[in-house]
Amino acid sequence: MDPSGIFPTSYQADGRLIRTRWQALALVLFLALMLAAPYLVGARIIAVLNMMLISAVIAVGLQICTGYAGQINLGQAAFMGVGAYTASILASKTGLTFLLVIPLAGIAAAVFGFLFGLTAARIKGFYLALTTIAAQFIFHFAVLNLPSTWMGGSNGITVPPAELFGLRFVSETAQFYLSFAVAAIMIAGAFGIVRSRFGRAFVAVRDDDVAAGIMGINVAATKANAFLIGAFYAGVGGALWAYMIRFVGVDQFTLFHSIFFVAMIIVGGMGSIVGALIGVFVIRIIQEIIATVGPNIAESVPFVGGDIVFAGMNVILGGVIALFMILEPKGLMHRWNILKSSYRIWPFPY
């Protein structure tokens, strides 16, 4: 938000994302730091960053679906799984280049998401949210029960590495650059979507779908579109995931993973792309800490057993969701905005 006295004089100026020189500088610095990251930090941190970038793509998709369009989506991991499976089947059976595989994976997931979004034409509110759980179950059923030559059944599928002009994306660094390029395109796209007429329609439907319908927005189509876009992002993220892990199995895409993505956007702040990125960062750091500290605790306190990592992750993430909903329902982004505006108007209280 601009300080008082500065008014945009054209529509374009009003929609601008980068408004001040400092914002431009910060963005350039951030991008430069990300590009230089493989030369600055070790392979372990690069792997974590890579995971964050992939989660960011998926969480931004969920942000559009849930944060902007207001459709609770508990099937994001299933949509991601559809993308990951499409990518791995295409890559391992047809040998297509990843430049085609990644968008195709996104489209496959988008079609799957759209099918569930279509039910929005009839179903409203929580009933609609619950159909996304059905998506999760149907995805599992399809993978485990279709002939195992199609989708690998419970064995999963191994994925060949991405290749471009004879260059194989095998090392952590190469995969990081791949994820970074895709994530940058997807996130820039997300900023565009939420400023477009689609984004405005999403917000209108979220705030009040009856009122939005009266104003001439096709509510059912808007909801279905929200699912389509959210699932497309999940599919692209899933394809990146397949290329990074180089193995997909049905256990990687459960309801719990969906809830982790929900936790990310709640912590970051609903209805903000940057919020989704902050949420991804915070939640992934928490997960990383638990994964590092957990085994040590398990060693020193033997009676809790080896499941402490999974259990601790659930307790902490569940607690984080509940705490944020109770104490800070608008997320960290809201806190940051308060901080920013109080800095700007200092020393006045308002």
Partner: peptide, 11 residues
Amino acid sequence: VTVGLLILLRG
């Protein structure tokens, strides 16, 4: 919050 509870209680 009940979604959060789902994984919190399981943990």
